[in-house]
């Protein structure tokens, strides 16, 4: 399950006064099982990139291959793409419409070709994996749930198709800290089971903790593509790209300004803690 973008460009309203170039010459390969973080200022082209990957829009130039097949090719079957890739939009709870949680989660399986029993299994699995009690919640109306539960049901509705690639656009916006952690842990679990995760977020702490690779877009161009360990080294550059860094990286940076030697690849608290300790004990000047 790889995604490959080859010289992909996208222009909105070409040939009119409203012409805007959203993406320019993007070359990118995302391998099986990666956990990719996508960052950049609002309006840098992140959402456009995601929508191109799931085939909701077609590139103005360039090609996109999923598993080696051009998804905008003449004989490509779109249904195949829908089965392989799941996409969680920002505030996905807006998509809920059915009379019960079970029906809503099953919606995406209608045209999947799965048998009734298989579909039911998938629905149960999806509801349980997002941390809800299947037997309790299955026949409840999704609209009677709390905000956090609605979000989980909406995500279950995408997971039920068991996509091999999961694309998420700011999935933790508006969740409280507990909901955030629970959701991020879920993405990690799915990733461990082999699902490729592509997540757009402004939250550098979350991406530092979970993503293995970071990509930053700037005005439609690929500005940075590196393992997350190295992605946050150049703070001055990140500032111009409008990207924040994790708190651990910030502390390490502040310490280095105080004259302490700190490695520039500290991005998680677990990595920072031993360093803090040795500095505080005075053995690190």
């Amino acid at each position: 399950m790889s995604i490959e973008l080859s010289r992909v460009s996208y222009t909105y309203s070409p040939g009119t006064v409203f012409e805007t170039v959203a993406l320019q010459e993007i070359n990118l390969t995302i391998e099986d099982g990666e956990y990719l973080g996508l960052m950049g200022k609002t309006g840098c082209g992140k959402s456009t990139l995601l929508q191109l990957m799931v085939g909701l829009m077609q590139p103005s130039r360039g090609q996109i291959f999923v598993d080696g097949k051009d998804i905008n090719g003449r004989d490509y079957v779109r249904a195949e793409l829908r089965r392989k890739i799941g996409m969680v939009f920002q505030y996905p709870e807006i998509q809920l419409f059915e009379t019960s949680v079970e029906k809503d989660v099953a919606f995406g399986l209608k045209h999947s070709g799965l048998s009734k029993a298989e579909a039911a299994d998938n629905v149960r699995w999806a509801i349980e994996i997002v941390g809800l009690d299947y037997d309790k919640i299955r026949s409840v109306s999704p609209f009677s749930l709390s905000g956090g539960e609605k979000r989980r049901v909406a995500i279950a509705g995408i997971l039920a198709a068991k996509p091999k690639i999961l694309i998420l656009d700011e999935p933790i916006a508006g969740l409280d800290p507990k909901g955030r952690d629970a959701f991020l842990d879920l993405t990690q679990k799915l990733n461990a089971d082999g699902v490729t995760i592509i997540m757009v977020s402004h939250n550098a702490d979350a991406l530092s903790k979970y993503a293995s690779r970071i990509i930053i877009l700037d005005s439609g161009r690929l500005a940075l593509d590196s393992p997350s360990k190295d992605a946050f080294k150049d703070l001055a550059r990140l500032e111009t790209l409008g990207v924040g860094v994790s708190q651990a990286r910030e502390v390490a940076h502040l310490l280095s300004q105080c004259g302490f030697q700190t490695p520039a690849d500290i991005i998680r608290y677990e990595e920072l803690q031993p360093l803090l300790l040795s500095i505080a004990r005075g053995g690190h000047l």
Binding site: V251, L254, L255, C258, Y269, Q273, L276, L277, A280
Partner: peptide
């Protein structure tokens, strides 16, 4: 970090709430 340092035997004079305050206290 303050609590972790404390349990390791390092006592900061005040409880820092921000990263800046933490680094200042350690310095």
């Amino acid at each position: 970090a303050y609590h972790d340092l404390q349990s390791a035997g390092v006592h900061l004079p005040t409880i820092p709430l921000t990263n800046k305050a933490l680094v200042e206290a350690i310095c």
